[in-house]
């Protein structure tokens, strides 16, 4: 353990270098997260609050709007994340072929969506998916549909629209991580498998996917954390008259509900903090679950 032996002056310098970051993290992360835990035991509105024990947790179970926000968020998560990860892997595998022409072009094009701000792309999608808009026009022209899809007006289609939008924005971002991992894989393994007559699909399933497992885990975890906090899209694409989550709360997410509880209605901070801890618990549980699943298969 020789590498841990430092002189005293080095130790002092280490803390001097760390001091600004650690101080800021203490003020803006550790203190708020503990404070919001304490808040979650407070009930009441505005400035009139009192200790309510587990009253907020009881209120969660009786609150149909919360349950809808929770269901919506989990639907987005369960459907969108796997679709996006699969698309990202497929794109990465296709782009990793050294014989492919136009690799740089395809990679840049597919990566491009993730340089847009969430708000800018949200307003673009809002206009593209208007009832008489370009997307419906194209689908009707291709005879895929016979009448316009009410993307923004019907709960089911509004959810689909959000899923399409997030997938557009983040697939290229995830693809980059898979591409990097693929480039680190020794090509001779594939050569050996090909010479042994292993077909392409089997090389993909038995060689590529297992080797990508750490990256799959990483991208799934960051996508899960991101999707659980979904806000910008549902407050901009499926917003009607400045109120997000439309139509009929069908795209209301937990983050948006917290925002509404704090800033749109008479603030009920304790309850909003309780809802925010639902996200904390979900992030922790799902991350642990994903690590567990990844370990099981080893």
């Amino acid at each position: 353990m020789g590498k841990f032996r430092l002189g005293r002056s080095e130790n002092v310098y280490a803390w001097l270098f760390l001091a600004p970051a650690l101080t800021l993290l203490a003020i803006f992360m550790v203190y708020p997260i503990l404070w919001s835990l304490w808040m979650s035991f407070q009930t009441g509105k505005g400035v009139n609050t009192q200790f309510g024990g587990l009253a907020n947790i009881y209120r969660l179970t009786q609150d149909p709007v919360f349950l809808r926000a929770l269901t919506n968020t989990l639907i987005f998560l369960i459907i969108q994340v796997p679709i996006m990860i699969v698309l990202a892997i497929l794109a990465a595998v296709a782009l990793n072929d050294p014989k492919l022409r136009g690799r740089a072009f395809f990679r840049t094009a597919i990566f491009l969506p993730c340089v847009t701000s969430l708000v800018a792309y949200s307003v673009l999608f809002k206009s593209m998916f208007a009832t008489d808009g370009v997307v419906n026009d194209t689908l009707m022209w291709l005879h895929i549909i016979s009448s316009p899809i009410p993307w923004l007006a019907q709960p089911f289609w509004a959810k689909c629209l959000i899923i399409i939008a997030i997938t557009w924005r983040w697939t290229g971002y995830n693809m980059i991580f898979f591409l990097a991992a693929l480039q680190n894989i020794d090509r001779s393994i594939y050569e050996a498998a090909r010479i042994d007559g292993v077909p392409a699909w089997a090389r993909f399933v038995y060689l590529t996917v297992p080797m990508l497992k750490p990256v799959i885990l990483f991208t799934t975890v960051i996508s899960t954390i991101g999707t659980l906090q979904l806000f910008d899209e549902v407050n901009n694409i499926t917003a009607s008259g400045g109120v997000g989550g439309a139509p009929a709360d069908s795209t209301l997410t937990l983050s948006l509900y917290i925002y509404n509880l704090t800033f749109r209605f008479m603030p009920s901070l304790g309850y909003a903090a309780t809802v925010s801890y639902v996200i904390v618990v979900l992030v922790a549980l799902l991350t642990a679950l994903q690590f567990f699943v990844a370990r099981e298969r080893k």
Partner: peptide, 18 residues
């Protein structure tokens, strides 16, 4: 710190606002 990486902003925004 790495554990704190997964703290969602949604859980910080109310106390930060106050």
């Amino acid at each position: 710190l790495l554990l704190m990486l997964s703290i969602p902003f949604a859980a910080l925004m109310i106390p930060l606002f106050v």
